[in-house]
């Protein structure tokens, strides 16, 4: 017991290292597989030491439309995230600083979009998209993804705007600034952290979105995650290539997360839990 007391911090570090390793193992294993030659993938017991190769990455880049899917993913998620952040900032400012009739109902409505499975209304989305010619287009998908992003954008930014003292905008307005002017000149700059956090969260959610994207896109505007499905046709034969494609599909997300690490708790809980 005295040993435990004395080395408590050391023991914790050991336990946490083991836990962290377990949580990272699938990602590490996928990464190792992406560097393996075909013959090293199917061994039993699994090989931990082997000669690494970038063959798989080259194969994915050369033989598939990887770059097209990557550019689709980037265009769609960046534009949807940017729109959401802007719309969300306006609404969050309006709802937290002005008297709007039914604002509670509107807020609950917005929140309900986060609570309801997006696939529950995929049928009308599909029919609408076909009817107005937005099926399998980047802009169509970016608009549909607003349904995923708007609740994050509004609720998260409300939590940031509420942290700004009201007096600051009021004094700007007393100086003769219009409310909209105060929003652009005072609130937005003060909410910079919130804007950034919201943008990154929307980016992650749009990038990862799968069911709506799968149903609403075809070969033209398919995103990276949906393009993963094409590896499934040769089930289990090309794990090396598939893992290389997976690694390249999640790399941008891991970078976004590294940037947004600090805001993750707040972002994922739509601002209800503040670190």
């Amino acid at each position: 017991m005295r040993f435990v007391q004395k080395h408590r911090q050391l023991l914790l570090v050991v336990i946490l290292s083991v836990v962290t390793f377990l949580f990272l193992l699938p990602l590490i294993w996928a990464f190792l597989t992406s560097l393996k030659l075909h013959r090293d993938v199917f061994t039993f017991p699994p090989k931990w030491i082997f000669t690494p190769t970038i063959e798989n990455y080259l194969y994915v880049l050369r033989e598939t439309d990887y770059l097209k899917f990557m550019s689709n993913s980037i265009v769609i998620s960046f534009s949807s995230a940017a729109m959401s952040v802007f719309l969300g900032a306006l609404a969050a400012f309006g709802l937290s600083r002005f008297r709007v009739k039914g604002s509670k109902t509107i807020l609950m409505w917005i929140l309900s979009l986060r609570m309801i499975p997006p696939i529950a209304i995929v049928v009308p989305f599909y029919l609408m998209a076909i009817r107005i010619g937005l099926y399998d287009t980047r802009s169509g998908l970016a608009i549909v993804l607003l349904a995923i992003n708007v609740p994050i954008a509004v609720w998260l930014q409300m939590s940031y705007i509420r942290e700004i003292p009201k007096a600051i905008e009021e004094s700007a307005m007393l100086e003769g600034c219009s409310p909209i002017g105060a929003f652009f000149r005072v609130v937005l700059p003060l909410e910079a952290t919130g804007l950034f956090a919201t943008f990154i969260m929307c980016l992650i959610f749009s990038w990862n979105e799968f069911p709506l994207t799968m149903i609403l896109t075809g070969n033209v505007s398919k995103t990276l995650p949906v393009s993963m499905l094409s590896w499934d046709t040769q089930r289990g034969l090309q794990w090396g290539n598939m893992m290389a494609a997976s690694m390249m599909a999640i790399a941008p997300i891991l970078i976004f997360t590294a940037l947004a690490q600090k805001y993750l708790v707040r972002g994922l809980t739509l601002g209800s839990v503040v670190d």
Partner: peptide
């Protein structure tokens, strides 16, 4: 309880943000 949790957190949250469909394929393989 750990003084060093700062160093573990960024790694521990990676599963949360990993694209779920990719997670599905990684586990299909595993």
């Amino acid at each position: 309880a750990s003084r060093y949790h700062k160093y573990f957190l960024p790694l521990l949250v990676l599963p949360v943000v990993t694209t779920p469909v990719v997670v599905g394929y990684i586990f299909q393989y595993m």
